[in-house]
């Protein structure tokens, strides 16, 4: 490794660290720690409870159906999708439109790509708090059949980390798109997160979707991420469409599709960044 490369890596790491710290401050210091704790607690639990009540209304109060933990876990881990995806793309909106500092970030000795990833890491941290709260609530209140000590760690950690990396890469892709759009940037993150919620079988098995949507779902890395996480924690698969895939196949598909997303995301972000600079969009103020 040359001195220049080493210096570049050091700068990237510094950008990641500083952005993570900044992101954490933005996410958490808007109020006192007590209110922040209440906020962190209420939102994910309310989100999970909507699905729990829907399930209980139909099942008549029974929670022993295997679809219950399937729905609950999918919903819990889906919190990451909203947090990471929108966290990264919203960082562009916040810094450009709200605080008006994106141009200063671009002229400072910082790697913007790693800066955005750092903002995503901050949202991952707040998302992790929400996921842990939701899972613990599920285990304690609804006797979710999850044993954190005995689950399949060999499957869980690689799947979980690759999935998170994949989400960050899609977030970067959206950040690129946000850079070159004016009036639609608020909708894009929500549209992608909403579409993934529907298509990757987050809260219901893919089998209930129409065939065309099932095929689209099978082409998304998040489908395999959620399936892998559920298998690692519950030991079984509820979805007949995904059941024939072995654990190894799930891992391989997830890894290779994340690599593809990574390549597309990197290339697309660079193209968007160049275009934003050419068109003078880095300091755009749309007032929307």
């Amino acid at each position: 490794m040359t001195v220049l490369q080493r210096e570049s890596w050091r700068e990237s790491l510094r950008s990641l660290k500083v952005a993570t710290w900044l992101g954490w401050q933005i996410e958490s210091n808007w109020t006192d720690p007590f209110l922040f704790a209440v906020y962190s607690l209420i939102k994910p639990i309310a989100g999970a409870m909507i699905l729990v009540v829907m399930y209980l209304v139909v099942s008549g109060g029974q929670t022993d159906n295997p679809i219950f933990p399937y729905i609950y876990l999918g919903n819990a881990f889906y919190i990451y999708v909203g947090s990471v995806l929108m966290g990264i793309s919203y960082a562009v909106i916040e810094d450009r439109e709200h605080y008006g500092v994106l141009k200063y970030i671009y002229v400072s000795p910082i790697q913007v790509y790693f800066y955005l990833l750092g903002r995503g890491v901050a949202r991952t941290l707040t998302g992790t708090i929400a996921v842990i709260i939701t899972l613990v609530f599920g285990v304690l209140v609804f006797k979710l059949p999850v044993n954190f000590l005995k689950m399949n760690h060999a499957l869980f950690w690689p799947v979980f980390l690759i999935g998170l990396a994949g989400l960050a890469l899609v977030g970067i892709l959206l950040a690129g798109l946000t850079l070159i759009t004016a009036r639609h940037n608020y909708f894009m993150g929500e549209a992608v997160a909403g579409a993934l919620y529907l298509l990757c079988g987050a809260v219901f098995p893919l089998d209930v979707l129409p065939k065309v949507l099932q095929y689209i779902g099978l082409g998304l890395p998040m489908t395999y991420w959620l399936e892998g996480v559920r298998r690692a924690m519950l030991g079984t698969s509820v979805s007949p469409v995904l059941a024939p895939f072995t654990h190894e196949t799930i891992l391989i598909i997830l890894f290779s599709s994340t690599l593809c997303v990574g390549a597309i995301s990197l290339g697309f972000y660079r193209w968007c960044e160049r275009r934003a600079k050419e068109k003078g969009l880095i300091d755009m103020q749309t007032m929307y």
């Binding site: 699905l51 829907m54 399930y55 139909v58 679809i67 219901f204 979707l209």
Partner: peptide, 9 residues
């Protein structure tokens, strides 16, 4: 998504 949850149930 919520419709499909009910259908799955």
């Amino acid at each position: 998504a919520f419709v499909y949850i009910y259908r799955a149930l």
